[in-house]
């Protein structure tokens, strides 16, 4: 099957500094992939190259043109202007192809579709709320609704679970898994290795170049993750689950606090408490 997107030997730099080097990446229809790596690894830059928002400094990017790939993008929440006067429903409606309706107002069918998607994401009752007045998880779902209303073949999400509580993050990954099972191709970036290990079938470890890519069972090893993050990563496998964690460094809180004693933690009046002058 032909890939939707193919990057061959792609290099990208802002000025003289190289952000990405020698990237080879294929995204096939129906694939669900996550880019993981430390901050500054080039994850968002790679997404923007895939979306053709940036052009490569070197190398080649192929995107299927016949028919043209329908794209949708959910950016990082921190890039959103939260003071902009707009409701959840208005954001969702932005995803509708403007070429299908030249009038400024949405058709009844478009409004019903937006409502149905907001309901599906369990935020139907918040449609008329200003986006600033929603929780992190709800805000993320509003932007996911805008993407879904566009009926994309390829859905690209930049850190969809950042600033979101554990339950909401789990829900987001469940929705993404369901969408992928319905045939949608998904590419996302995440800092949540455990969530990626649990839900995403293909992970790409990135730190300016691709360190490794494959199923999480093969790629999430201490050696590969430590190389990706340039740190000491501990990987624990239990009950078919993978947990990855940065090993606390020499001055972690356990080295600083007094050890717990029988009967509870020491209080400030006890002789074991550290008092600074």
């Amino acid at each position: 099957m032909d890939p939707l997107i193919e990057l061959s030997a792609v290099t990208f730099g802002y000025g003289a500094a190289m952000s990405l080097e020698d990237i080879d990446l294929h995204l096939h229809p129906g694939q669900f992939a996550a880019l993981v790596g430390p901050s500054g690894a080039g994850k968002t830059t790679l997404l923007k190259l895939v979306l053709r928002l940036l052009g490569p400094t070197d190398g080649r990017i192929y995107q299927r043109t016949r028919p043209r790939v329908r794209l949708a993008y959910v950016p990082q929440l921190e890039t959103v202007d939260w003071s902009f006067p707009i409701t959840a429903e208005e954001v969702a409606l932005m995803g509708i192809d403007h070429r299908l309706n030249m009038w400024p107002w949405p058709r009844g069918s478009e409004r019903r579709r937006a409502r149905a998607i907001l309901e599906q994401l369990e935020i139907g009752d918040l449609a008329q709320r200003h986006i600033r007045d929603l929780s992190g998880g709800q805000q993320q779902r509003v932007f996911l609704a805008r993407a879904l209303i566009a009926e994309p073949e390829l859905l690209v999400l930049d850190e969809p679970t950042t600033g979101v509580d554990m339950r909401s993050a789990e829900n987001i990954f469940h929705w993404l898994t369901d969408l992928n099972r319905q045939g949608m191709t998904i590419l996302l970036t995440t800092h949540d290795l455990n969530m990626a290990a649990a839900h995403v079938p293909w992970v790409v470890c990135l730190n300016r170049r691709i360190v490794a890519q494959g199923p999480p069972e093969q790629v999430f090893t201490e050696a590969l993750l430590s190389e990706t993050y340039r740190g000491d990563i501990v990987v624990i496998r239990q009950d078919n689950m993978i947990f990855a964690q940065q090993r606390p460094h020499a001055h972690g809180y356990r080295d600083v606090l007094p050890q717990p004693v029988a009967g509870g933690l020491p209080d400030h009046d006890s002789p074991t408490a550290v008092v600074s002058s």
Partner: peptide, 23 residues
């Protein structure tokens, strides 16, 4: 502004993302 209303709204809100959605 009437006929570019939706495109102008999306571009004003987030020009980069608007491009991805075909604006």
């Amino acid at each position: 502004i009437f006929f570019l209303y939706k495109q102008l709204l999306f571009t004003t809100f987030d020009a980069e993302v608007a491009q991805v959605y075909g604006v």
